[in-house]
Amino acid sequence: MIAAATLSLSQFHERAGCGVDREMAEDEEFETFIRNYQNMVFSVSARILGNLTDAEDITQEVFIKAYERFRQLRNSHAIGGWLKTVATNLSINHLNRYRARWRFFSEEGAPVEIAAPETEKENNRQEMLELAIRKLPDAQRVSLVLFHFQDMSYEEIAAKLGVSLAKVKTDIHRGRETLKQLITR
């Protein structure tokens, strides 16, 4: 009887140990998963939002959503696409939620100004372009990013943002012109 009880207790400990080990292994796997994809998700959010602090919040939200369905996602080949789509949707939702605030406080009509590079690091052309994208007005930046980085068509962008096709085309054109001016200056 005692032997049986001891056996079942040891089995219990073994199983509990296995459970803890499995949880730790899953944690480690998820950590590796974040390391692999964090730059991509952060870039998508930062370019759409034009704000690194908000982008960090959105990236966190994306990975928490990914954790909720990690068991289905980890073996999927479409995981990168899924993360990009979620990051894009959450970033656009974030902008829409604060649209009134953005309109009120942003300088939509004002010309885009980028300070002259101060450090060696900022002197990098790619960083200048990255900074210029962030400084574009919301409408131009979001359309331009969806077009160039997410490979979406004009029609898809118009449907996603709920605006006319003509507005998408104009915004992308204006955004590109502003970027060219800033880079060639």
Partner: peptide, 29 residues
């Protein structure tokens, strides 16, 4: 410009991101 945009590398995610996500995930679990 297309070429420049195409060549843009991913931005570096802040170092605080991973610990933040793992903390939230563990709290949720």
């Amino acid at each position: 410009l297309d070429a420049e945009l195409k060549n843009l590398r991913d931005l570096e995610a802040p170092e605080t991101l991973l610990p933040r996500v793992m903390k939230t995930v563990r709290q949720q679990a």
